[in-house]
Nucleic acid binder design. Structure first.
Lengths: 236, 236
DNA sequence: TACTGTGAAATCTTTCACAGCA
DNA sequence: TGCTGTGAAAGATTTCACAGTA
């Protein structure tokens, strides 16, 4: 099977691999923008601080995309990754919660590219409901979620609501038929059946940095990664 | 050794464990607020969707905090975790980049609690430099980082700058003596020696949800986690 | 020759299952 | 008795090292 995406059980691909695929895609976009046509796994590893064997193995779950003795054609591999990740279709996102964070996320470049789009925000604050963040991007009342979805399918909900109501909103979102949720609320949620929840817990991230901070009297040299391990994705 | 924090090489504790400690602390705070005095590992697991053996093992790296036959005293364990995580001292954070995201993070509750404080933002935009986000929280010019730090030590820098300048700002931050960095910029950074970098890549998080979205013609039932695995922290 | 693709080994992480203690 | 603390087993992930091929 040459240069062909094989059919693979997607649920058998680990999350770690999935996240790296997304990083590989970004690296390839950088290379393409720089006019690079061909890249070997070693060059990728060198330039982007990756592991070359891991790169090859991650790709191998999906097919054979390289040319032995040469490497990978950058535009080809990029397109394969776009297809593998499912970024070859329009993905519509709704943000639940139009506070500080929800509003910032609505404007985040990474959520508004090519085929990814934030299409609406939902809140319950009467001062916010009805307002437009920018042309075409309005804040609706949470109770309008179901009718909105009928006219404008939503693939991913982003949870950026107050902790108190997070569980409730998650259940509303699930009941509305949204099966993928990116959660920013720092709380342990009960995940409704059939829903995939990806949590980004900013406080946990900070606290794990605090854990490694040198304590009084220590000199902090121990921070250097003594094994020389690449920091990819055990940091994410 | 009873009820005593043992000395353990902090660098031998895995990141996964570290992140869970932070979650355990939050759960205990919830229990304490509810007036619960004592909790067993099984009750913790039940209530917060954790794994009881993992909970016990994570704690065991640091000492013996429980009482056999009984469980853990909630306030005691909470205090132990605060000490273990290093949250028993004032931690000062600076945010590099006063755009959408940087500004939202400056106001994020999880970064402004008890002993964690955002103490300044840094940007280069003349329209922003000098402004106050709120009393006591000012935006400074990036070139003022070194003098600022002399008067107000900073333990953690948060990187929320444009992709183009991320590497440069990371190096400035490192040169200023800040050894811990929480990075929000979606790029593979070269990590200066002695610096600990924790990356939060929002685009990667979304794309890994997209990967699992049902494709045209599929019915998406496969989204249910067939092994019944608990979603803790392979989702974070 | 210089690379990819890949089994096999090494390492890391979770889970089991039970000895031992309050 | 009912729990913790913990070795040992199982499982997941990374890394090695090389056969195979353009």
């Amino acid at each position: 099977m040459l240069n062909k995406e094989s059919h693979v059980k997607r649920d058998e691909i680990s999350n770690l691999t999935t996240r790296r695929l997304s990083i590989y895609l970004r690296c390839l976009q950088t290379l393409e923008a720089a006019g690079v046509e061909t890249v070997s796994s070693h060059e990728m590893a060198e330039q982007f601080h990756l592991n070359s064997a891991q790169f090859r193995k991650d790709l191998a779950y999906f097919g054979e995309f390289g040319v032995r003795g040469v490497g990978y054609r950058v535009p080809d591999l990029k397109h394969h990754l776009i297809r593998i990740l499912g970024l070859d279709r329009r993905i519509r996102m709704a943000i639940m919660g139009a506070g500080n964070l929800g509003t910032a996320l609505a404007g985040y470049g990474g959520f508004n590219t090519d085929n990814l789009k934030v299409t609406a925000l939902f809140d319950t604050d009467p001062d916010k409901v009805g307002r437009f963040l920018r042309p075409g991007l309005q804040i609706h009342h949470v109770s309008a979620l179901n009718p909105f979805i009928l006219g404008h399918p939503v693939h991913i909900a982003v949870l950026a609501v107050p902790t108190m109501v997070a569980q409730e909103v998650l259940e509303q979102v699930a009941a509305a038929g949204i099966r993928s949720v990116l959660n920013f609320v720092p709380v342990r949620l009960k995940v409704p059946a059939g829903v995939r929840l990806q949590s980004v817990d900013l406080k946990v991230q900070v606290e794990s940095l605090v854990f490694h901070l040198p304590r009084e009297g220590e000199d902090g040299q121990a921070l250097v990664d003594h094994k020389g391990k690449d920091p990819i994705l055990h940091t994410v």
